[in-house]
């Protein structure tokens, strides 16, 4: 609050001004972070399967591995007593768009050593297939299903490769790809019609059903060939 009588504009010179700012991001010298013990060990063990190594956001170590050897490397990281990355914190993928490869990202954390490591495998769009790690970590089961659902990455050897978030018969593609439009590929009317045409009881997976017949709770008229649906709009 300005004192009465003082020039209100006298105060505005305090503090940094927008024009004082230099170009954003950090020109500050990157603090030389401590070398990560697992990175050296990985290079020793796997040689050229370790494609690259970088340090992100100050102190986060990222290792790019050969996608063909991901299970080998990850199981070593999990089992080796010096590494012991027993907690797969996250498994996800990143699409940068523009035809660049999709990265599958494993966030590892070692509970005994209190150490984090990020492992990435780059998959070219033409060959979106990588070995599943659901055998190493049970939690990878759903996480991989989600990546497959959202990015279309095929996880070879996955025990249950179904879509997880989208309906099983979702026809519009893989939503988190950069080429997927935010509102989907179909019109809203088509999306609504397709959604309501589904019978919620129908999407049992064959393994769930065994040799049972699907139970029909209510018969919802399913008119495939009825293009002009006359619906009572209530007015």
């Amino acid at each position: 609050m300005n004192k009465a009588g003082s020039n209100p504009f006298a105060m505005v010179d305090e503090g940094p001004k927008p024009s004082d700012a230099t170009v954003f991001p950090e020109d500050a010298p990157e603090a030389a972070s401590a070398p990560h013990p697992s990175v050296e060990a990985l290079r020793d063990h796997f040689g050229d399967a370790i494609v690259a190594h970088e340090v992100c956001a100050g102190d986060q170590h990222v290792v790019y591995v050969d996608p063909a050897r991901n299970v080998e490397i990850l199981s070593w990281l999990k089992a080796d007593p010096g590494q012991h990355y027993d907690h797969l914190a996250d498994l996800t993928a990143v699409d940068y768009g523009g035809g660049r490869p999709i990265q599958v990202v494993y966030q590892l954390w070692s509970i005994p050593h209190k150490r984090a490591l990020r492992v990435k495998a780059e998959l070219p769009l033409s060959e979106l297939e990588i070995e599943s790690v659901a055998g190493l970590w049970r939690c990878a089961d759903w996480l991989e299903r989600e990546v497959a659902d959202m990015f279309g990455v095929v996880f070879a050897g996955h025990p249950d490769p179904r879509r997880i978030l989208m309906p099983e018969n979702y026809a519009e593609g893989y939503p988190l790809r950069k080429d997927f439009p935010l509102r989907g590929r179909f019109s809203r009317a088509e999306q609504t019609r397709r959604a309501l045409r589904q019978n919620p009881e129908d999407d049992y997976f064959p393994a769930e059903m065994g040799d049972r017949e699907p139970q029909l709770v209510a018969s919802v008229a399913d008119d495939e060939d009825d293009e002009s649906e006359e619906v009572n709009h209530g007015d």
């Binding site: 505005v12 990143v94 966030q107």
Partner: peptide, 25 residues
């Protein structure tokens, strides 16, 4: 009270804050 702050406020709201081309967990 200050033109520069006003412009700056406008720029921050419309342009947003840039982030470096890195990733962070």
């Amino acid at each position: 009270s200050d033109m520069e702050s006003m412009i700056h406020h406008f720029k921050l709201i419309t342009d947003g804050i840039p982030a470096p081309a890195e990733d962070c967990w």
